[in-house]
């Protein structure tokens, strides 16, 4: 593991302490367990994401949130409609689409995002191509995926924003 500065560790530790306080309603009886848990979670977070990793553009990420929530609502409605329709209208298939994001977190986050959006499910990459399962092959998946990938490149500062 790379060297981690006290400031980096304190910053992540504070965020995770906040999560713990919310989850336990700040119950004093949970402080001791929380101290151990937060320390372990902070250590794990540095194992999984280096302190040198370029910081995420949180403003750009936040700007995507309303659209994401709306789209994931549509995603739930869409799949519910298909599941309950007596004719079971599905045309499942696979798209193999070029990955233009760096390996690691950017690809995992994009995969998670598209696994919650209407009609797409991501199964990671192979040879720098995303494997995308779709419920309906007739939808414009390439275009939507490309647009989402471009947004994620801005969030992870892979392009100027």
């Amino acid at each position: 593991m790379e060297r981690v500065s006290v400031i980096d560790a304190a910053r992540r530790g504070l965020v995770l302490s906040g999560v713990w306080l919310i989850l336990t309603s700040a119950d004093p009886g949970a402080y001791a367990v929380g101290a151990v848990t937060v320390a372990a979670a902070t250590w794990l977070s540095f194992r999984l994401r280096s302190p040198r990793a370029s910081p995420v553009n949180l403003l750009r990420a936040a700007s995507l949130l309303p659209g994401f929530l709306w789209q994931s609502l549509l995603g739930g409605v869409d799949v519910a409609r298909r599941a309950l329709d007596p004719r079971l209208p599905l045309a499942p298939g696979w798209f193999v689409l070029p990955a233009r994001l760096r390996e690691g977190s950017p690809r995992v986050v994009l995969g998670g995002e598209f696994s919650l959006l209407p009609g797409t499910l991501v199964a990671g990459t192979r040879k720098d191509r995303f494997l995308v399962h779709v419920l309906d092959r007739t939808r414009p998946v390439e275009r939507e995926f490309e647009a989402g990938q471009e947004e994620m490149r801005e969030v992870f500062r892979e392009v100027g924003s």
């Binding site: 994931s72 609502l73 995603g75 739930g76 409605v77 869409d78 799949v79 519910a80 599941a83 599905l90 499942p92 696994s115 919650l116 209407p118 009609g119 499910l121 199964a123 399962h133 419920l135």
Partner: peptide, 14 residues
């Protein structure tokens, strides 16, 4: 894979 769509999307919205 189609079943995973149902679980992730409908249940999260639920």
């Amino acid at each position: 894979h189609s079943r995973l769509h149902a679980l992730t999307k409908a249940d999260n919205l639920g």
